[in-house]
Amino acid sequence: MNLLRHLGFMFLGVLAFYRPNDPLNLYVIGFGCLVGFIYSLLCKGFMHRALRLLNIKLKREIGKSPIEKAVALGGLFILPFAFLAGLSTLWFGWTLTTSFVTTGVTAIGTAAGMEFSKLTGKPKLKNTLITSGMAWVFSTLWTMGIPFLVHAPGFLEGGASLVKSFFGVN
């Protein structure tokens, strides 16, 4: 489940930096994968820890693992968004990756809250609020962060070319 979620976010990361005129640029693909992977780790980690902190008594009763599993199961909800983002970017040529990520992360937050409510036996407002709040924070992080990072693959490529030129490698 974790691997599928990581792959979904890594693919969304690649699409966020996608260059239609240079689709197989390894720097873009590598950087997109890295950004997606870090985002996926942070998203799951923060959601998981926040739920654990808010439900210390439950954590003592059932342990960390079921809470982690509930969040991981909710994370699967990113997959349709990743697939459709790929379809829209690579097939239709639309640039809507940010919309796909923000709606996908919101769906993850809702799903994680739902999965977690099965552990508690009934939905609790604080858990719904924390997962939805986290989803909102991470959506904003992606929306605000990607424009800052958009030139990073170009800088990486330029830096690598410079280093290669020092060593006389083409």
Binding site: F77, L84, L96, T103, A107
Partner: peptide, 18 residues
């Protein structure tokens, strides 16, 4: 069309999935 229309369709995927 894209900013509101397509985004609205995307927002519906979450409720559909749940």
């Amino acid at each position: 069309a894209l900013a509101f229309g397509a985004t609205g369709v995307l927002w519906s995927l979450g409720p559909l999935m749940i």
